[in-house]
Design a protein around this nucleic acid. Structure first.
Length: 474
RNA sequence: GUCCCCAUCGUCUAGAGGCCUAGGACACCUCCCUUUCACGGAGGCGACCGGGGUUCGAAUCCCCGUGGGGACGCCA
């Protein structure tokens, strides 16, 4: 049988990290078994669903490269199907009308809670042989309830958590269609999973308690029961539950925050799943290795440090041209326009090894394209009066020197400085390199200063030195 | 409250009764490389929630605690 998995978000917000991981695992499972991955939008909550959220979810999936084979299917466009199935259940007596008002149910719930009971519908409208039902009120339009079995146990072998058993006595007759006739979540899921031939339902473990109800309905419909895999949740960096109020962000936020999708994907894959000691792997390897029995059943805490480490790895590995166009956009956002010289690829070649974040990388190299503003403290500390003559000498030497083309290479500027240090008896390399750093990069930390100079080019190097040396002379 | 689930270094995890003196990764610390800072390399620190069983033998199986989480909607 061909594997068919699905990702079924409700479009009430962006795609967050937990949803992304659920989608990733469903996607990978389908890929591994050469099956189909289906996207289904569960938008039956008309109040909260928005087209913008649908778009946000699809944007997130696209950024991560989680492509789907079928869909997106929208539940709101499948009403006819649901109503048809609903009618067959009504006809078969596996569902029935209930005329309780919301207020009545509220009162019932509260009194049960007070008695320390699990709040449940008391089946007052459930038709039973020999039972007389209340008389139908005319001012209330009924909901439809599923006639859940009252005895026995629902059991399934969860692909992540193992065998789970829940007694039917714990369940009540859930509402499957609202008073306005629209079907509810548990019912739509059942119909869809059935009709779409879903073979493995991979979803968050907040659905564990829905599973036995869904299995009961599937049975009532004579449908095949899919396998279930319930993924544990992802906790925030602080070990707290993620919520709109606390820490839950869109996966797209990771893009904005300077992360590569490869890093996020690799990180998410490794969060709750493992393949021996493997830490770094691409999605092709992941799809080959992925299996449901190496998923941890316990909740996992998000760790930004490790994500950063993976991000550093993928920045090193990235295609240099793609990296350059990404960085150019990030620089533009901070008001820095990349020029033709120095070539951004060359600059990145010098800097990518040390970066673990794209935004930071962009900030670090901005000085190649926009004049840096050095810190006053650094200027005073390193561009001192006693080093000034040496700097002036160096500048002269650099000016007289043939740098070859501006892209460097032919002539070793570093050698020129080394020679100068060697020929002097009171000069050390750092003593001259640090003020150069401040003048050229505006900071005290950079790659080898001669490498920076070569990429910056002769003209620009001299101009930046000139600026400080003039200042000092006054 | 009731039901369900979970429990190995700070964090992510390996672990299917003897390969465990509990392995790897991130973070942290030390050293090396580096005439700055990173990168990189080599080491180090660091965990089986508690108590009972079962067994020749338990991180692993069972029970009870404890702790954490989830679910109990005309939300999904």
């Amino acid at each position: 049988m061909i594997v068919r998995t699905r990702f079924a978000p409700s479009p009430t917000g962006f795609l967050h990290i937990g949803g992304a991981r659920t989608a990733l695992f469903s996607w990978a499972y389908a890929k591994k078994y050469h099956g189909k991955f289906i996207l289904r939008i569960e938008d039956t909550d008309v109040e909260r669903s928005t087209p913008a959220a649908v778009q946000a979810i699809m944007d997130g999936m696209q950024w991560l490269g989680l492509d789907y084979d079928e869909g997106p299917f929208y539940q709101m466009q499948r009403m006819d199907t649901y109503k048809k199935v609903l009618q067959t259940m009504l006809d078969a007596g596996t569902a029935y009308y209930c005329y309780c008002s919301k207020e009545e149910l509220e009162i019932l719930r509260e009194s049960q809670m007070q008695q320390g009971l699990k709040p449940r519908y008391d089946r007052r409208w459930r038709p039973e042989a020999g039972k007389s039902l209340p008389s139908i009120p005319h001012n209330i339009s009924p909901v439809v309830r599923f006639k859940n079995p009252q005895t026995g146990v629902v059991t399934w072998d969860d692909l992540v958590k193992g065998r789970i058993e829940i007694a039917n006595a714990e369940m009540d007759d859930l509402i499957i269609a609202r008073a306005d006739g629209t079907p509810t979540y548990n019912f739509c899921v059942v119909v869809d999973d059935w009709e779409m031939g879903i073979t493995q339902v991979i979803r968050g473990d907040d659905h564990v308690n829905n599973t036995p109800r869904q299995i009961n309905m599937l049975n009532a419909l004579g449908a095949t029961i899919p396998q279930y895999a319930h993924l544990s949740m992802i906790l925030g960096d602080d070990g707290q539950k993620l919520s709109k109020r606390h820490g839950a962000v869109s996966v797209m936020q990771y893009h904005d925050d300077g992360y590569l999708p490869e890093a996020v994907l690799n990180y998410l894959a490794r969060l709750g799943w493992s393949h021996g000691d493997a830490e770094i792997f691409n999605m092709q390897q992941f799809c080959e290795w992925f299996d449901l029995d190496h998923i941890t059943p316990s909740a996992a805490q998000f760790n930004t440090e490790k994500l950063n480490w993976l991000n550093a790895h993928y920045i090193k590995e990235a295609n240099i041209d793609e990296l350059a166009s990404d960085i150019a956009i990030r620089l533009a956002k901070t008001g820095v326009e990349v020029k033709l010289q120095p070539k951004l690829q060359d600059v990145l070649g010098l800097y990518r090894e040390r970066a673990n974040n794209l935004n930071q990388l962009a900030r670090d190299i901005a000085y190649f394209y926009a004049l840096p503003q050095a810190n006053v403290v650094d200027v005073e500390k390193y561009i001192t009066d006693d080093i000034l003559p040496q700097l002036i000498t160096l500048k002269k030497k650099l000016a007289d020197f043939d740098w070859g083309r501006d892209d460097g290479g032919a002539v070793d500027v570093g050698m020129l400085i080394s020679n100068m240090v060697r020929d002097s008896n009171n000069l050390t390399y750092p003593k001259i390199a640090m003020p150069l750093r401040v003048m050229l990069t505006g900071t005290t930390q950079s790659p080898n200063i001669d490498a920076v100079m070569r990429i910056l080019g002769k003209t620009e190097t001299l101009a930046r030195m000139e600026k400080y040396l003039n200042q000092k002379k006054q």
